[in-house]
Design a protein around this nucleic acid. Structure first.
Lengths: 261, 261
DNA sequence: CGCCACTTTGAATTAGCTCAAATTCCGTGG
DNA sequence: CCACGGAATTTGAGCTAATTCAAAGTGGCG
């Protein structure tokens, strides 16, 4: 059963309210190709208008840290970044993942200091954008403001999707959804999605998904047993996903107590 | 033990990075008084610059709905609103709560349509702000852009706090944290916090916190037994909180397996 | 007054956690 | 090149927090 796909996306020819919501991201190729192009266009625009400073980052290095004074936003040009929240009482959790084209640092605007750590998960490049310079540029180039607000809006939406996953899905489905999201994010970056390299340990994945590392491991084993994923010969960090849609179906199926198959 | 309080807030006199993060919101009176004033100031500014259309809402009425074409942002001038997410596969969840001064509708910017329902939980008033008009006004009045971005940033931070609560706290602590957050939100609106009226059923609270209504009920009973809260003589929707700080302590204590008291 | 939705509480069940042990992977140094 | 050691992963076996199922209690409101 396919997730009701429509040929064109975000082309609101109809003005009236449309009762159907679609929180779960699309996975079809056309959509991702468009998204990929959008990312490239955005990066190009930012590059031209702001000529941002480029910075190479390596796995484990922070782009910014909680408490640090806010001055810059960042755009990830390549690599993968985790956002780690730290509560006053010492709890620590991965609260977000960032891919190519994603913005970093929005959390810092409100209180003039970052509220989280942003930490590279492998080698990559971030572009540093001074917030005040960005605002100035937005005045000259309104398109930039559109892009900025779009990115913030998307982050809000994405965070809510995370919350829904954690609150409404059982552990196995949460892991499946996580893999689907990761593959989808790669696709939007224009990267291959059949063979993916998880840049996180089971412990980190579990922390992100609100479960223990053992549960993550068991869930992955189960998914492999169902042939929804397969591990590489060597190294269990690399996973192949024959059909990303299958993961979405698995999530769906886990919601039906009495499976109709 | 107080959460390390500093006399002034967001006054970054020190430039260097400061390793301490502080995700959990403040609860002290000075801070809330300031926040309350800020809300009033913001509302005043918006009122003057944009002369927004006002609209009275009643419990159960939607301010906007998922799928509806995005055109407006809204500001809540009074009342309480829940944000309800709806996933493609039919899951439904309360993913946010809004109080006086909060903005609604950011989720709609990215895809030109709202991704959630915003539903009034009692009688109140929202101000409607056309997004294009807002952008135009921001060009004239930069302060407005600062306010807007601050609100979006705060929403991002708040969503992440929610995720952390759900992922890292046991059920009882989650409920305690929820009450603390609610009381804190009321305080920031300048409302009394010792006697609060929950506008949600146990089922809604459970849905928001990722647990069943029975677990919410049991958690509340337990908190009442500990004298951290007390129910009104009549009606179990009204709750009195003798000391909001006690709730924060309870959350903290639940994190220590071997309690040192 | 009586209905209905909401809430509370109990008892049984279970998903996910904790603890523990075995295995695999990978970098490092001989 | 291979041996070694530490870190990450897998898998099993109990245990526990939270869920499910069920029944009784309570309050609001026509």
């Amino acid at each position: 059963m396919f997730s009701s796909a429509s040929p064109t996306v975000a082309a609101p020819t109809l003005a009236g309210p449309m009762p159907m919501a679609m929180a779960t991201p699309r996975t079809d190729a056309h959509f991702n190709q468009r998204a990929s192009q959008q990312i490239v266009d955005t990066l190009k625009l930012l590059n031209e208008v702001l000529a941002p400073q480029r910075r190479v980052i390596h796995a484990g290095e922070p782009i910014y840290q909680g408490g640090e004074r806010f001055a810059n936003l960042y755009i990830l040009n390549s690599g993968f970044v985790k956002i780690v929240g730290l509560s006053a009482d010492g709890r620590e959790q991965v609260v977000g993942l960032k891919f190519r084209g994603d913005w970093l640092g929005f959390d810092g605007i409100a209180d003039a200091q970052y509220a989280c750590d942003a930490i590279a998960m492998d080698t990559g490049e971030v572009w540093t954008i001074r917030y005040d310079a960005l605002l100035a540029a937005c005045a000259r180039e309104p398109m930039l403001l559109t892009v900025l607000h779009g990115a913030m809006s998307r982050e809000i939406g994405r965070d809510r999707d995370s919350l829904m996953s954690v609150c409404t899905l059982p552990a196995d489905a949460r892991v499946a959804e996580f893999l689907r999201y990761w593959a989808d994010s790669l696709a939007r970056c224009g990267l291959r999605t059949d063979q993916i390299m998880l840049r996180m340990t089971r412990a980190e994945i579990g922390n992100y998904l609100g479960m223990t590392l053992e549960t993550v491991s068991r869930a992955l084993s189960r998914l492999a047993r169902c042939k929804l994923i397969a591990f590489a010969e060597k190294g269990r960090r690399e996973i192949s996903i024959p059909d990303v849609g299958g993961l979405a179906d698995f999530v769906q199926a886990s919601l039906v107590p009495a499976m109709l198959q």
